[in-house]
Computed example of a mutant assay.
Amino acid sequence: MRDVRAARREFGLGALGVLLAFGVCEAVSRAGIVRRSYLPPASEVLARAAELAGDAAFLDGIGATLRAWALGLGLACVIAVPLGLLLGSVPLVDSAVRAIVEVLRPLPSVALIPLVSLLLGSGTGTEVALIAYACVWPILFNTVYGLGETDPLAKETLRAFGFGRLAVLLRVELPGTAPFIAAGIRISAAVALILAVATELLAGFGEGLGIFIAQAGLATDGTRDVLAGVVWAGTLGLVVNGVLVWGERRLFPWTPEHRGADGGGGGR
């Protein structure tokens, strides 16, 4: 119950912070401290964001952004999890590719937009490729780290009973690494959403939430629409993170950060 109370307190403080930020923005705009063309009242921005929920064209754009987000994140998982298991299980392979990984990892995905656009064109393929590239790294390194944290006694016990390398991987290492992989996916999900919107913003054409924000920024008195689009982007990120955290709690309730989060287990 202590964890439940802590979660409720954290949620309450977060909600209070949002309300305070809302009040400050509203007061600053209404008082004329900042021109409304630069900072519209928060109530008008929220009203516009709610109005966009009934705009079919805008919702189609949201759908396009979420499709690119899902495809890019899924591709990153397909690449990063097997590669992480390989690097974490075979030290020789890890040593052979470590230098390449360390060279590629710091490269920002946004800087690769011109190159990827030349290779794949300026469509969904470019967006998905950039998202996948950015999302591979958190999943990959979490997978490798999770393998390193696997209980060595459990592995040695299986080997003592004659189980082979593949059986040890499937029965011990992969289940033990799964919470770390899930955490990497949750981190990458936020990165994927950022890249989806940013790539659309920089492209400036097509469809998607980033396109809406970019076009609103070019319009006269478009600040309200820009901020409404930002509200939608933040809301999508909040929902995605909440769903993934909920999934982690259901799938891995034994992990320290989730133990007792759902009720009486912590109070017994």
Rank of each mutant, 00 (worst) to 15 (best):
A182H: 10
R186D: 06
D221A: 10
G229C: 07
R224C: 09
Q215N: 14
G222D: 08
V226C: 01
V226M: 01
F180Q: 12
L195S: 07
E173D: 15
A196N: 10
I181F: 02
T223I: 12
T223L: 14
V191W: 10
L209A: 08
G206M: 10
L195R: 02
A182C: 12
G210S: 03
G229F: 01
E200R: 00
A189I: 06
G164H: 02
A167K: 15
L218A: 07
I185W: 06
A219T: 11
A214Q: 13
R186I: 04
A182W: 09
I213Y: 06
G176Q: 14
V168K: 05
V197E: 06
L195E: 13
G217A: 13
A183C: 06
V172Q: 12
A189N: 07
F212I: 02
G176S: 15
A228Q: 07
L166E: 11
V172D: 10
I185H: 00
I187Q: 15
G217T: 06
V230G: 01
P175Y: 01
V191C: 10
A182P: 09
A228S: 09
G184C: 02
G229I: 10
G229P: 13
I194G: 06
F163H: 14
L169I: 11
G210D: 05
L166C: 05
G206N: 11
I185P: 00
L193P: 03
A167Q: 15
F205G: 03
G164C: 07
V168Q: 11
L227R: 05
A178N: 05
E207H: 09
D225A: 08
G176P: 05
R165Y: 03
G184N: 11
G164P: 02
V226W: 04
T223N: 07
G210R: 01
V230R: 04
G208E: 09
L227A: 02
A219N: 13
G229N: 10
E207L: 01
D221S: 15
A198W: 02
I213L: 01
S188A: 15
I211G: 00
G210W: 10
L227W: 08
G217I: 08
G204L: 08
G206V: 09
A192N: 07
R171T: 12
E173M: 13
P179Q: 07
D221C: 08
G206D: 08
L193W: 13
G164T: 04
A203T: 14
V226L: 03
L227C: 08
I213V: 11
A183M: 12
E207N: 09
S188P: 05
A198N: 10
I187S: 13
V168Y: 11
S188V: 13
I181E: 02
A216F: 07
W232R: 01
E207S: 14
A190L: 11
T177N: 04
A228K: 07
F180H: 15
A192D: 04
L174Q: 09
V168H: 08
A190G: 12
I194A: 14
V191R: 09
G176M: 14
A196L: 08
S188H: 09
G176R: 06
A178C: 05
G184R: 13
T199D: 09
A214P: 08
A190H: 03
R224M: 12
E207C: 00
V230K: 01
L169Y: 08
R186L: 05
L202N: 01
